[in-house]
């Protein structure tokens, strides 16, 4: 064996081919089957896609590095489940390009934060976390309320997401900027289109409390309020997994 190596280390090209070969095996065995084995991701036929406003909110969540301190992955451990809710299913991040499972909980897990607090709580908390949780070490995000949300290119965002596999329709793409506005302006005529395209369960509210202005705060709160709400893990998907022969 060492004799073989003695010859191998005299030739640079065979040597680098050997490195590439040896280093490829593990990744190939672990990653490739995840795309082909059907059971890897559960079925959730009723799962809906993110609205344009939620996509924008998700992008703000990434931009501000929220994932550095908050996970979105409830593990199958008793204390995780009792603290944060039903353990996370693979299907729940099916439309997450990229996933935001996170690696650190400087703050609590957010996988099921949606609906747990009111919009107003989120707005106050993001404006100054210490106004509602005195001991919090979270940064203030007060400028979100002052920053107008850029919606003009949301159609392009949805189109790119469709290219990587999220089932957005042409109708959704064409109306993306209008829907973003409509979702945060419940009394406006354009809000009906959001419900029509994304379903009756969609939150249509003035998330930041000001229906006339569309701010980054609207988008981020809309996203936080949908976390864990795209499908109900307790009901259809788990039941289906059991039915499968």
């Amino acid at each position: 064996m060492f004799g073989l190596h003695y010859r191998l280390e005299r030739k640079s090209i065979p040597f680098i081919l050997a490195i590439v070969g040896v280093a490829s095996i593990g990744g190939f065995v672990e990653i490739a089957p995840l795309f082909t084995i059907h059971q890897t991701v559960e079925d959730a036929p009723k799962m809906r896609v993110y609205t344009p406003l939620e996509v924008a909110g998700r992008n703000i969540y990434m931009r501000e590095g929220c994932y550095a301190c908050h996970s979105q992955m409830i593990r199958t451990l008793r204390d995780d489940v009792e603290r944060y809710g039903h353990y996370s299913l693979a299907v729940e991040s099916k439309y997450d390009h990229p996933m935001l499972w996170g690696s650190k909980r400087t703050g609590p897990d957010l996988a099921r934060i949606g609906g747990k607090y009111s919009d107003q709580w989120h707005v106050i908390h993001l404006d100054n976390p210490r106004a509602v949780v005195r001991q919090s070490v979270m940064p203030r995000y007060d400028w979100l309320m002052r920053t107008e949300l850029k919606t003009s290119d949301l159609g392009l965002h949805l189109k790119a997401l469709r290219a990587v596999g999220v089932p957005y329709t042409d109708d959704m793409i064409a109306n993306a900027p209008v829907d973003a506005y409509g979702q945060a302006a419940p009394d406006s005529p354009v809000s009906e289109g959001v419900v029509k395209r994304y379903g009756a369960a969609t939150n249509v509210r003035a998330f930041d409390g000001r229906p006339n202005e569309l701010t980054e705060m609207d988008a981020l709160v809309a996203y936080l309020q949908i976390l864990g709400q795209l499908t109900s893990p307790g009901a259809d998907s788990v039941a289906q997994a059991k039915e499968r022969p």
Binding site: E30, I31, L34, F35, T40, V41, A90, V91, E92, S93, K94, Y95, D96, H97, P98, M99, W101, H157, A160, L161, A163, V164, G165, V166
Partner: peptide
């Protein structure tokens, strides 16, 4: 840009 992979495959 949007990652080509999503969810569990993306995590791996």
């Amino acid at each position: 840009s949007y990652s080509l992979f999503s969810g569990v495959q993306d995590a791996m």
